[in-house]
Design a protein around this nucleic acid. Structure first.
Lengths: 242, 242
DNA sequence: GAGTGGTCTAGACCACTGC
DNA sequence: CAGTGGTCTAGACCACTCG
């Protein structure tokens, strides 16, 4: 199994790529079990330990989920455990309840300079914009605008958003086969403009958290750009540094 | 090597504890190499693979640092790589330069309700409070107040803070043998009060990022509580979600 | 070349799940 | 009980670093 290339890539990483490839093509679907380590070892003609190491990394990256005695599963945004992975807004009171989403609007547009740069599409290419409010017990906490490449989200409508029970990423996963794997957020403090202040029920000029997110799917391909404004009067954004 | 206890703990985790113990007691110092995997395997009477798995986890937790061909090293806050692990404030312009710290004040006090709860010390126990400004090219960006258990930081003075070149955590590590391993941050948006606004050079009432941090050392023991106010006019707080 | 961590293998056995 | 992931071992060999 020698590998004389200057950019040495160990076997288990090659196996890892093959597994990711199978995930990407949908050979194994979110929530389902993938073949056992033994089966994969046979299929790829390597030892179980090598498959194991590949799966270990994928589990660490939250692409797969291991459950002893049961098997290894494709991670899914439908899983309740995924709820707080991407929205880390916690009430000061401490009781953790998922925020309720309400779609305000959903329309088509053409990508401007910024959107095209961030989403990696042509300027002028079709995009979809969604405006939402997230509520905590009937109280609006977040307003956001989500920019999506139109080509990947054909058929997305405000009705679909309104009917959907669950997180928006689980909708993307189920209806469009798009899995959000990781994201970067840029956080700043801003003053509430009039329109936003009215929606959130705060004074004009009140301080808000501005959270700008780019989310990526397989191959670090950006597929979502959003900007949220969070009222942090009764909530905080939690971040673990380690 | 049977282990019939109801709370099963694999061998490699026991080895991991032994290594952490050695780190905690200072047997191996920050920046130094620990013994090779072979030596540790001999010392603990287990196979190299078991030591390896223990070290793998400690490296993933940033307690150790592996360098192929050289050895395994105790992570240190003096290492430039650690600079951006705990302060993730990036200029909008993009060029990453460490902020310059200026100590404004440093005084002794007694722990109030909140400080004693958070730091896990008796109410009324001695604490040390440090006030600082962090600057980016002579421009103040952050003001913060740091609360420390007095008992662990005896001898800390404003002169010491002013003389120190490097991050405050590297000072804690070098002078007080206290290593910050992980932290939790609660982030909110607030309005600048007069005093703070003057220091940061922003208008009174301007939106600021409020970042409240609790930092932990070995055994998840809290040893620092701080609150920072960040001016995000020309910087943003970066967070990676994965 | 000697020493370090990194990979890969093969096999044995353990802990957990569900039938 | 069979099947899954999880642990542990022993040994071979590879890639990297440094003297």
């Amino acid at each position: 199994m020698a590998n004389e290339s200057p950019t040495f890539s160990p076997l288990y990483r090659q196996i890892k790529s093959l597994i990711v490839q199978a995930l990407e093509t949908g050979e194994w679907r979110p929530g389902q079990a993938i073949p056992s380590e033994q089966e994969l070892a046979l299929r790829f003609q390597v030892s179980q330990g090598t498959v194991r190491k590949a799966i270990d990394e994928l589990a660490a990256e939250n692409l797969l989920l291991r459950r002893q005695g049961k098997g290894t599963f494709v991670a899914s945004h439908s899983d309740p455990r995924a709820f707080f992975r991407f929205l880390r807004l916690i009430p000061l009171s401490g009781d953790i309840v998922p925020l309720k989403s309400e779609a305000l609007d959903c329309w088509r547009a053409k990508a401007g300079q910024e959107a095209s740069r961030i989403l990696g599409i042509e300027p002028g290419a079709p995009i979809i914009i969604v405006r939402r409010v997230l509520k905590h017990e009937a109280k609006p906490i977040v307003v956001d605008e989500i920019y999506l490449p139109g080509e990947m989200f054909q058929g997305l409508s405000i009705e679909m958003l309104r009917e959907w029970q669950g997180s928006i990423y689980s909708l993307f996963e189920s209806r469009f086969g798009l899995r959000m794997l990781r994201a970067k957020e840029k956080i700043r403090a801003v003053s509430a403009e009039r329109a936003v202040a009215d929606i959130l029920g705060v004074a004009e000029g009140a301080p808000l958290l501005s959270v700008e997110r780019v989310a990526y799917t397989y191959g670090d391909k950006p597929v979502e750009w959003r900007r949220g404004l969070y009222s942090t009067a009764e909530h905080y954004y939690l971040n673990d540094l380690s």
